[in-house]
């Protein structure tokens, strides 16, 4: 479902003497449907960079990134927009939302974008928020006022609202207590069970051991000149 081959990335900082910094070279990996692959490597090794390139907010210098039939490395913006709507989900470490929109609507949004009726989308959102222990009295409030852990859980609820065939998870269990961590791991297992291809970054070794079928160390993709 996800097939990355020979991917490279260079940052050029024009306002700092046009410094060109190669950060990735020859990155190659696949994630099959129903499989969860964990990215490992020290902080700064390029795990999040690789994930962002698959999501499409970082441009690839060369190589290909196939998600289903779309090559994110060369696709038109509108093809990536369509891919993100229906096929590729992403739970980042940060929640970015329009201020003052109720939590329930934030979580229902991915379904609304796909054309689901408001009440249906909201009831599905409510189920997820309940599972993730966000008390109902908070649903009508904007998550921007929530604690870090609550925001993280809202972000996860939103990421799992639509059954994406491919899913990127950046530290989904960070800053969660034991009960919520358990729920997130169960959500990941359910997604695998329905055939989702999942690529994740987990610093939590127990979580990694439980949900990941394979690990890929991104250190192998660090450019030789830098390493």
């Amino acid at each position: 479902m996800i097939r990355v081959s020979n991917l490279s990335k260079t940052f050029t900082l024009h306002n700092q003497g046009a410094a060109a910094i190669p950060v990735m070279e020859g990155a190659t990996l696949t994630v099959a449907s129903g499989e969860c692959v964990g990215l490992t490597g020290a902080s700064g090794a390029g795990k999040s960079t690789l994930m962002r390139m698959i999501w499409g907010n970082y441009l690839a210098a060369s190589g290909s990134i196939k998600v289903g039939d779309t090559d994110v490395a060369t696709a038109e913006p509108r093809q990536i927009i369509a891919l993100r709507r229906a096929t590729l989900g992403y739970v980042s470490q940060f929640l970015r939302v329009v201020p003052r929109v109720p939590t329930l609507d934030v979580v229902a949004e991915p379904l609304r974008v796909l054309g689901a009726p408001a009440d249906e989308a909201r009831s599905h959102a409510a189920t997820l928020l309940t599972r993730l222990n966000i008390p109902e009295r908070l649903w009508s409030l904007s998550p921007t006022t929530f604690s870090g852990g609550e925001q993280q859980r809202v972000n996860i609820a939103r990421g799992f609202a639509h059954p994406y065939p491919a899913l990127l998870l950046d530290e989904p269990t960070a800053s969660l207590d034991a009960a919520n961590r358990e729920t997130v791991l169960a959500l990941i297992e359910e997604a695998k069970g329905r055939g989702a291809a999942i690529l994740g970054i987990f610093h939590d070794e127990g979580a990694r051991a439980r949900v990941c079928d394979r690990l890929v160390d991104v250190t192998a993709f660090t450019p030789k000149a830098v390493a």
């Binding site: 940052f11 962002r52 499409g56 907010n57 970082y58 441009l59 913006p77 990536i80 927009i81």
Partner: peptide, 8 residues
């Protein structure tokens, strides 16, 4: 893409 232009 908006987030690509802003993030990279």
């Amino acid at each position: 893409l908006t987030d690509q232009v802003l993030d990279d």
